[in-house]
């Protein structure tokens, strides 16, 4: 498959996953603030989790519900906003319209058109975010059920999984950020609400309850980082991304022929043999910092391996 097409599929899928996560995070945070004491700042952690603190501070003063929601939803100057993600997803999808199914394209285009209407109406209601999430889930479902499960689809999965692992880690980090490692095991007031909100941000509250019942920090880390069955856990995402890379290259498990396989394989093995206590001992924030770096490297390695820039040396393992 053409490298350009693979790359566009990868980014289409990453931006759609980003859209979905952003919408869910904003919606959960908005509903959470209703239950929390009003003297605390509940919006700064969200900006932090989205990784756009610097650009927010440059454009706005103290975070408030209005300016954060506006900044994260419709501000196209903010490259991490919902609108920017949808715009990029559509523009990538449009460049590979001939390779994706008509149903996929139509749904992506509809998401884009709906967003434009909502922006004109200034809609930031809970329903709006629910619809965005649902629309993205619909695209995921249409993709998996209409697109042949061959090379192109594997690139869709790589993008989706790398993005999802990154977003799950950011959400976890946001709720941990203001805690020192020695505090990690102590439950503070409102903590229960915060944990539940975190799980809701990943659509994981129900699955968590079925697996662990009561929320504790250890179980939370175990579930969001290491659970193999939960589809938004970091370990699950890394394992699927690795499998997708191997499906394209044909390299057997436990060996590697290119850097993408090496990095993802190493990261997956690391997660396979990590205990949640180790993460908490070491510090969740530190763990996540290192993890995000590894995910970025893995993403760059995927693109260098399969989609080298014109003029770059052919990838190792290429024919």
């Amino acid at each position: 498959m053409l490298s350009r097409v693979a790359e566009s599929l990868y980014w289409t899928s990453r931006y759609l996953e980003r859209t979905k996560n952003t919408a869910r995070m904003i919606a959960v945070n908005a509903s959470l603030t209703l239950d929390l004491p009003s003297e605390e700042d509940h919006w700064a952690p969200l900006v932090e989790a989205m990784g756009c603190r610097a650009s927010f501070d440059a454009a706005h003063g103290a975070p408030t519900a209005d300016n954060v929601v506006g900044f994260l939803t419709y501000d196209t100057e903010n490259p991490d906003s919902l609108a920017a993600s949808v715009h990029r997803a559509r523009s990538n999808a449009q460049s590979v319209r001939e390779f994706i199914t008509l149903e996929m394209w139509e749904q992506v285009n509809r998401l884009y058109l709906d967003l434009g209407r909502a922006r004109d109406a200034g809609d930031t209601s809970a329903d709006f975010y629910t619809n965005v999430v649902r629309s993205c889930q619909l695209i995921d479902g249409i993709t998996d059920s209409t697109m042949s499960h061959d090379e192109g689809w594997h690139f869709v999965r790589m993008g989706r999984m790398i993005e999802r692992a990154d977003k799950t880690s950011r959400m976890l980090d946001a709720r941990y950020l203001f805690r020192l490692p020695e505090d990690a095991r102590r439950v503070r007031p409102y903590e229960g609400l915060l944990w539940a909100a975190l799980l809701r941000s990943t659509s994981g509250l129900q699955m968590f309850r079925q697996r662990h019942r009561q929320i504790t920090p250890e179980r939370l880390v175990s579930f969001l980082v290491l659970d193999m069955a939960f589809p938004r856990s970091i370990r699950h995402c890394v394992a699927v991304a690795e499998e997708a890379v191997r499906a394209v290259s044909g390299t057997p498990n436990s060996t590697f022929r290119n850097r993408a396989e090496q990095l993802l394989g190493r990261l997956r093995a690391d997660l396979d043999y990590t205990h949640e206590d180790e993460i908490i001992e070491k510090g969740v924030h530190e763990f996540i910092d290192a993890l995000q770096l590894k995910l970025n490297e893995a993403s760059a390695a995927i693109l260098e391996t399969f989609c080298p820039a014109p003029g770059a040396a052919p990838p190792r393992g290429g024919t």
Partner: peptide
């Protein structure tokens, strides 16, 4: 047939190749 844009093609060693996920073809 593959639908390509100019940036998908290159001339390498005197022949025209297209950049694919499996290397130049």
């Amino acid at each position: 047939a593959e639908l390509v844009e100019g940036s998908d093609l290159a001339v390498d060693g005197g022949v025209v190749v297209m950049r694919t996920t499996q290397g130049p073809e």
